[in-house]
Design a protein around this nucleic acid. Structure first.
Length: 217
DNA sequence: TGCCAGGCCGGGT
DNA sequence: ACCCGGCATGGC
């Protein structure tokens, strides 16, 4: 079986098992971008608490987040962990967003994706995964998001090497999948769902795993 | 009760 | 170009 067919089969199996996930959880592109920063190495459950606090204070509006004092912001996002670091990172991002694009998603995402990606990576606190999450889920641009689950699951099944860098893993998906926003969106969401719910110490029963067919190849 | 979660940076080799 | 320590809360 060819790698491309295996990947599509994995995707299809996950989709059949979990159903459509319709990511990213968030009402607006700006909320998605804030969430992408807050969820760095942190469970979504904790991030939601922080997001809800921000929402209550009307801080999911770029201008308001731009204005608020960083110390005050840090206190509000405490539940998401690394609150001092993340307050700084949110400030870095919102400053970029307001000063370069007047806080307009339309302006930001109207430019070409590759150029925008390079600019995002220059913002201190935005790395490859956060940048790609912003591009894909807030901007609907065809960038594949690689996370810890992706690396773990695909290296365990020997589709990529265990020590492959972010860029290499991403290239693996670009090489073997059509560059479609819908597919990239749903595929990554499905991978996260699989990683969260299957093949963990809490749920070691791999016989019911939707991609168990990989074990016999 | 410790371990881990949808990373990233800065300093050191 | 990699490698590592630091950052911090909440859930199990």
């Amino acid at each position: 079986m060819k790698t491309k067919d295996i990947l599509l089969k994995i995707y299809q199996s996950l989709y059949d098992f979990f159903g459509p996930l319709n990511w990213w959880p968030g009402d607006t592109p700006f909320e998605i971008m804030v969430g992408a920063i807050l969820t760095q190495n942190t469970s979504w459950n904790n991030v939601e608490k922080a997001i809800n606090k921000l929402k209550k204070e009307y801080l999911l509006e770029p201008r308001n987040l731009y204005r608020i004092d960083q110390e005050e912001l840090a206190q509000l996002i405490k539940p998401s962990g690394y609150f001092n670091v993340k307050a700084q990172r949110l400030k870095n991002f919102v400053t970029f967003f307001v000063e370069e694009y007047s806080g307009s998603e339309k302006k930001m995402f109207s430019s070409d994706g590759e150029g925008l990606r390079r600019k995002l990576l220059k913002v201190n606190g935005i790395g490859p995964e956060t940048a790609d999450s912003i591009l894909l889920y807030a901007g609907e641009k065809p960038f594949f998001v690689v996370d810890a689950y992706t690396k773990r699951i695909f290296s365990r099944h020997r589709l990529i090497s265990k020590e492959a860098a972010y860029h290499h893993i991403q290239e693996f998906f670009y090489r073997n999948l059509p560059k479609e926003v819908k597919l990239f969106n749903e595929f990554h969401a499905q991978i996260v769902m699989l990683g969260k719910t299957r093949c963990t110490s809490k749920n070691p029963d791999c016989s019911k795993c939707p991609i168990a067919f990989l074990n016999s190849e």
